[in-house]
Computed example of a mutant assay.
Amino acid sequence: QTYTGNILIAVNPFQRLPHLYNDHMMEMYKGAEFGELSPHPFAMADRAYRLMMNYGISQAILVSGESGAGKTESTKMLMQYLAFMGGKVESGGRSVQQQVLESNPVLEAFGNAKTVRNNNSSRFGKFVELQFDQNGKISGAAIRTYLLERSRVCQISDPERNYHCFYMLCAAPPE
């Protein structure tokens, strides 16, 4: 990973690296000066969070790349950090933080499919909006999807598959 100005270039290692994305790493990047530590998605999320809190202005983080580049995983890391910074607001017994992070597998089932290059490829664009209160705590979230590949529902090229939800429905227990 490296920075180019305020741009983080991340390369998908195609393996899990949990030691780089745990609570200890989030604590390290919390409040660190941008560029002080190694380039990391947590640094980008921290910068956006601090700008939002210091200036009261909405921030945006654009995650872009080709299929299989790791956009979904990078987005999860950004959300994980922002939930770490702005979590703990309760809503119906579960924190908003938990609800936002737990919603992703449901979205993936209805919008991800196996492709030639990726077993869990998002076949849609996603706009994730996290809303924060004056104290910097998450108060709500909205996830909008767009450009869903409708053609995949009725036509699939071998060895690709349809959306995961169809296979889950077929494998569901009788009850």
Rank of each mutant, 00 (worst) to 15 (best):
K88F: 13
I143R: 13
R117Q: 12
A141N: 04
T145I: 15
P18S: 00
R50Q: 12
Q131V: 08
L107H: 14
Q131T: 08
A171G: 11
G68R: 03
F14C: 03
G35E: 15
G31M: 03
M28C: 15
Y163L: 10
P105I: 02
A60Y: 00
G93Q: 04
M25V: 13
T115L: 01
T72I: 13
V116G: 06
V89W: 15
A109R: 13
A171S: 06
I57L: 12
H24I: 10
T145W: 14
F34Y: 09
I61M: 02
R50V: 05
L130K: 00
K30R: 15
I61Q: 00
S151G: 06
R150C: 03
I143H: 08
M77T: 10
N6H: 12
M44Y: 01
R47V: 08
R123N: 11
P174H: 07
L107I: 11
V116P: 04
E175L: 14
Q98H: 07
V89C: 11
G93N: 00
S157T: 14
P174G: 05
Q155T: 04
T4H: 02
Q155E: 10
G92R: 04
N54V: 09
A172N: 10
G56C: 00
P13C: 02
L101N: 01
K71A: 00
V153G: 00
N104R: 14
L82A: 00
G86Q: 05
V96R: 02
M26A: 13
G136P: 02
V11C: 14
H19C: 04
I9C: 15
H24D: 13
Q131D: 10
Y21F: 08
C170F: 09
G140D: 03
Q131R: 15
F84V: 04
A60N: 05
D46S: 08
N6E: 12
M52Q: 03
N135V: 14
D133V: 09
A83V: 01
V96P: 01
S139M: 04
A10L: 06
M79P: 03
R94F: 13
C154F: 13
E175M: 15
C170T: 07
Y21S: 01
N112I: 06
R150D: 14
E102D: 09
L51R: 08
S64R: 11
D23Q: 13
I9T: 10
